[in-house]
Design a protein around this nucleic acid. Structure first.
Lengths: 106, 106
DNA sequence: TGGCTATTTGGCTATATTGCCAAGTATCGA
DNA sequence: TCGATACTTGGCAATATAGCCAAATAGCCA
């Protein structure tokens, strides 16, 4: 694997990493329903505002969400709705794993 | 967010995490073209066999690949081809980011 | 201006991930 | 049985990630 190939996979992994966290997956789900300000998301997630803000900045750095300041609040919105298509695949993996575990148990 | 919801997102994130690594993304790409043994993958990836083996075990634990021992070799295959659909979305994110960076630069 | 709310960032600790080496296990063939 | 090859696992050090608190920044309104 040469350097160019390696850095392409690196870039892809960076985006996957941004989504590889329960809180950030939750945030993406919420933003799929429309824009939300940090305070709204913080209310839903049981964590410090600073933690939520950090998660949002990770998603923003990855290019997955956009932010827009309106007055004193910052509204985040989903920039790439196609990530939502992944969910059905992830669910498929989970179901298959569950089935396999049952099979092993018996 | 209640406990049940939290653990569902936790499970999803676990799967995303398994893919959030350049080497593992490369492996998935290779397996998309057919099964490969550890030695073949190790040759392609410039890393210790033990490292490649560990990456494969992460993918296996997530339910993304399956392994089958044949003689002295272990062949891995892609169990969930739908993860390949994510690539176009990831590329889209990368392209959009690149465009944005250019726009900021000017 | 001063105080209030919303958000971000610095700094810290705790935890998780990664990669290597070395050692262990398994299969095959001489 | 012995040796060689393929692979996995234990253990360690380096690095990355996560979460919290405290402090800084920014906009709004009295």
């Amino acid at each position: 694997m040469n350097q160019k190939t390696r850095s392409r996979y690196e870039a892809r992994a960076q985006i996957m990493k941004a989504l590889a966290h329960p809180t950030r997956l939750f945030i993406v789900d919420q933003l799929a329903q429309g824009e939300r300000c940090v305070c709204e998301l913080t209310k839903m997630i049981d964590a410090d505002v600073s933690t939520v803000s950090r998660h949002l900045s990770v998603l923003k750095a990855a290019g997955i969400v956009a932010d827009e300041k309106r007055g004193v609040q910052v509204y985040y919105s989903l920039l790439v709705p196609c990530v939502l298509n992944w969910y059905s695949c992830v669910e498929g993996v989970l179901k298959a794993s569950a089935k396999r575990h049952v099979a092993i148990a018996h």
